[in-house]
Design a protein around this nucleic acid. Structure first.
Length: 669
RNA sequence: GCACCCGUAGCUCAGUUGGAUAGAGCGUCUGACUACGAAUCAGAAGGUCAUAGGUUCGAAUCCUGUCGGGUGCACCA
């Protein structure tokens, strides 16, 4: 509700300042005052104007006088506001009519339609190597990416969700080596392994790591396997494909537990075998975007030169990025450039597609493959996006910058803004606290025990698996549900426990800002009090409780707005401040009204934590309200309708915010 | 060496892009349930925003230096 108003104020102030003072401001700050007695929106623009006037005329002007002039002018052009006042040294505070605004809000759906992109946005997230179970670091990526997808869709964007599958890399090769050389298994024997295949590979992958360390000559098996996979020939390649296929199914199942889904899974093998890179390579050469190193230690390589701002080259480090090795093979960054050219429709070719998995509701995930599909089912059109957003850890910033520059170098003029609109959504990793490592049974040196965090390592088998964390959260939640809801069936109890677990893990991963490193601690992640997903659910369960009790008592009020509309004076009285004490109801409503501004901010900064923080703040404000006012025992019918109106306002925004976070609340818990 | 990120309460973190009195959760201490569910609420204590300068009406936020921490710059993926 406040977003359009805020933009109107911004524009009005801007034009007024230009007309009254002849000053053109690049942008005008319109913010939320610290409390409701200071208005609903405010601008400190008079300070800025005073500064600029002094610079022009040389004489001092009191910000308060300027604010007064502006406030007078704004009153005539901003009829939405009941009062516009000057406060403090020169703030301009704008006040809405509270009763009218409340009535209007009750009829307005939450959210905002404010697409920023010119077309379909391609969000890539998860992209876990298909050789072992997903751990909580992968989970942060997926949860962040999924929240971003939901956020963009909520603001009116069309989004296509990609999960890139590196099915030809070292990581898959290493597990192949493990099966063949450590366990001596054939493809048929591997296929016969039952149980959780991703867990099996997790352990095997760690064994391969130590097996290599015992005798480095064993690394030749990795090379041999890698080559076989690249040539797509023989039993080793078939085994690699089998492993990747099965692990991807495991990852989809893990993510589906959290309600995270995808549209398409482009495979690296296809990028190679369908000559995505070959085309990109020729065009990069023709555009002069890459150069051939004729001499020096990188003789024979094709490299992309570093930009001005990048790290500099010295004896030990080379700032330029190799895309093609001296043996003629392309590396990861080169392949990524080809993939991203395809994402924006700059490449001429396309993947073949086969239906990989169908969710319960019928939605199909397609895999982008090299082989033509057997069945005749037609996939939708993928790629050709108006922008790409890559949820990839911050450690990849350097490589991502080269991807961006590579794509830009081949983008036709019409697509240059698509590249400009694209972004690397960088996030920090999840590490483990020493306490968590010990809890997992890992030995730590004395020095490691003193460190603030320990990095996870798939190669060492050091990490918390996503499914294990979810299992622990679910069983803990189930114990509570059984205690609180003994009459429900076990199926119902488990459904509720599952929702609680999802809320807990999603909120835990989203409450941190993207660039904050999470030192994972079991006690923190499993907490069910305070700032947690559980707290958020509890608020909505209380709402459901209120409604249930009112129904049982025959005190239903399906349309509080209708009751309130005829009691305008009473409403105004209930919403009035007491001197310098802000009215508690209006303060709560003010928070509700900000929901759309929060969505816009999160979308512009690609930062879902903003929504997580908002949801908690709203839930917290509601809990206070809930404890102070008992609706069920409120004798006055109009007052009851009033309180109930606030409940439904909070409910609609809180539910919408949780929806963006991927959290679904149960009726009871 | 160079580039990027970071340093806020005992701990874990926010901080509306330079604004009004720096906020939460956990932990500590006080209180509040035969209930519209206490998985909660009300309250208290706890801060030279790493540090020294600078910019300005105004700085946790911008600039510079210093100290401390993290990451990246591999012919890897």
């Amino acid at each position: 509700m406040l977003h359009p108003l805020r933009e109107t104020v911004r524009q009005a102030v801007k034009t007024l300042v230009e007309r009254q003072f002849g000053i053109v401001l690049p942008d005008v700050a319109v913010e939320f005052p610290p409390n409701a007695t200071l208005g609903d929106l405010a601008t400190p623009v008079a300070f800025e104007v005073a500064k600029r006037r002094k610079a022009i005329t040389g004489e001092k002007h009191a910000p308060r006088d300027i604010a007064q002039t502006l406030a007078d002018g704004l009153r005539t052009v901003l009829p939405d506001f009941e009062r516009i006042e000057v406060a403090g040294a020169g703030y301009i505070n704008l006040f809405l009519n509270r009763a009218e605004t409340l009535l209007r809000a009750l009829n307005a759906p939450p959210g905002v339609h404010a697409p920023r992109f010119r077309g379909k946005v391609i969000v890539e997230h998860t992209s876990v190597n298909p050789n072992k179970a997903a751990h909580i670091g992968h989970l942060r990526n997926a949860v962040l990416g999924d929240a971003l997808v939901r956020l963009l869709r909520a603001t009116g964007e069309t989004v296509e969700v990609h999960n890139y599958i590196d099915d030809t890399g070292v990581q898959v090769a290493d597990v192949v080596v493990g099966f063949v050389h450590i366990e001596g298994r054939s493809l048929g024997e591997v296929a016969a392994i039952d149980g959780k295949f991703d867990d099996y590979c997790w352990d095997l992958y760690a064994r391969v790591g130590t097996w290599y360390a015992e005798d480095e000559s064993r690394l030749r098996w990795r090379t041999e396997t890698l080559h076989a996979i690249e040539r797509h020939e023989g039993e080793l390649a078939a085994l690699g494909a089998h492993i990747a296929e099965r692990i991807v199914h495991c990852h989809l199942a893990t993510m589906e537990r959290l309600g995270i889904r995808y549209d398409v899974l482009p495979c690296e093998s296809a990028i190679l075998r369908l000559d995505f890179w070959a085309e990109a390579f020729e065009r990069l050469k023709a555009a002069g975007a890459i150069v051939y190193e004729a001499e020096g230690r990188r003789a024979g390589c094709w490299v992309m030169r570093a930009g001005q701002e990048a790290a500099t080259t010295d004896d030990e480090h080379d700032a330029d990025k190799i895309l093609v090795r001296s043996n003629g093979t392309v590396n990861y960054t080169g392949k990524d450039i080809a993939y991203h050219l395809w994402k924006l429709g700059i490449l001429e070719r396309d993947f073949h597609y086969r239906a990989f998995h169908r969710y319960a509701d019928g939605h199909t995930v397609w895999m982008g493959t090299a082989a033509e599909a057997d069945d005749a089912s037609a996939p939708p059109t993928f790629g050709r996006g108006a922008a790409y957003l890559n949820v990839i850890d911050v450690g990849q910033s350097y490589a991502q910058e080269f991807v961006r520059r590579g794509v830009m170098s081949l983008a036709p003029d019409a697509l240059r803004d698509a590249v400009a609109a694209s972004a690397h959504v960088a996030y920090e990793k999840v590490a483990l606290t020493p306490a968590s490592c010990l809890e997992l049974g890992f030995e730590l040196s004395e020095a490691d025990r003193q460190r603030p965090f320990i990095s996870m390592s798939g190669r060492k088998g050091l990490g918390v698996k996503a499914d294990d964390l979810l299992d622990r959260l679910e069983s803990k939640a189930l114990a509570h549900v059984q205690a609180h809801q003994p009459t429900l069936s076990e199926t119902e109890q488990r459904t509720i426990a599952h929702k609680i677990a999802v809320a807990a893990v999603r909120y835990f991963l989203l409450k941190f800002a993207r660039t904050t490193l999470i030192a994972f601690d079991f006690a923190d992640a499993m907490a069910e009090q305070g700032e947690t997903g559980v707290y958020l659910l509890y608020s909505l369960v209380r709402v459901a409780g209120i409604r249930r009790k009112l129904r049982e008592a025959g005190l239903d009020c399906p349309n509080p707005a209708a009751v309130l509309a005829g009691n305008h004076t009473q409403l105004e009285a209930w919403l009035r401040d007491e001197g310098k004490t802000a009215n508690e109801f209006w303060t709560l409503i003010g928070l509700v009204l900000r929901y759309d501004t929060v969505l816009v901010e999160a979308s512009e900064t690609l930062e879902p934590s903003v929504i997580a923080k908002y949801a908690f703040q709203l839930a917290q404000a509601f809990s206070g309200f809930y404890n102070r006012h008992n609706i069920r025992h409120e004798p006055d019918e109009v007052r009851r309708a009033f309180l109930l109106a606030l409940v439904s306002l909070v409910e609609s925004r809180l539910r919408a915010a949780l929806d963006v976070l991927g959290i679904d609340a149960p009726e009871r818990m």
